[in-house]
Write a protein that binds this DNA or RNA. Sequence first.
DNA 1: GCTGATCATAGGCAGATGCTTACGATTGGA
DNA 2: TCCAATCGTAAGCATCTGCCTATGATCAGC
Lengths: 135, 135
Amino acid sequence: MERDDLGALFGRVVRRLIAAERPLLEAHGLTMWEYSVLTHLAKQPTETQQALAAAIGYDKSRLIPLLDGLAGQGLLVREPDPANRRAHAVRLTPDGLARLEAARADIRAMEEELLSVLSAAEQRHLLAVLPRLAD
Amino acid sequence: MERDDLGALFGRVVRRLIAAERPLLEAHGLTMWEYSVLTHLAKQPTETQQALAAAIGYDKSRLIPLLDGLAGQGLLVREPDPANRRAHAVRLTPDGLARLEAARADIRAMEEELLSVLSAAEQRHLLAVLPRLAD
DNA sequence: GCTGATCATAGGCAGATGCTTACGATTGGA
DNA sequence: TCCAATCGTAAGCATCTGCCTATGATCAGC
């Protein structure tokens, strides 16, 4: 057998990342899904909740209580969409952005350490290649 | 924001891999965990069930019915360990190895296709780097 | 104007998951 | 020799997950 399956290799990396991220996120009072929502909203400030659910790969019926929690903490707001009164545009608040950036700083530091087993060139190659596989 | 989180990137790749693998494994009558067990046994023929559970990251109390199913299909056997009558050495049968290799062939073909967006050099770099991150 | 589709929301359901406890058989060290 | 630890097994529990249905408000096309 020349090598492990890609699934096994990527799976083990993801496992490590999750194990390392969980305590960092917990320290900021966020779950993985909540962090995922905040991250996506920072990129795409406004859209329907359904689109948000699809974008992060979360169940739309389960997204509602998750957004309730984040809105209750003042990290995001649901605004009526003037063009479509059925839809609610979801937007990060300044508090939400601050919380996201504080958590992200810790996560980035963890990632740097995890990547430090690779040379700078290897890191560049990896980061160039991953988005193309993730498409 | 210079780039996505590693967790998001690796997570999306794993999501793609799982989505592509599931139907292939199903065609061979295997779940992801069963495939994982067979794969690991092909590398390490004998060991305790607990070590097997730890090696593939599966709950040891949930491994038993999974092994029952695979043994029931004749893909593996539990043999008494003469040196330690508490322990059961788990070993692939020829049928188990054949089933594994048939499934693996399909999965490898899928992986080739997925990797084909990368140049040969990029594929080499990626495959050299992944095991070091997966440690 | 009416009808079917869309959106947010609520609720339920089956299965998977991680974790814990218990128990009988067996082992190894005090 | 006896006691604690280990192994396989069984069972239970809270939670997460994907999926499916329903409902009220709103929209868009006929």
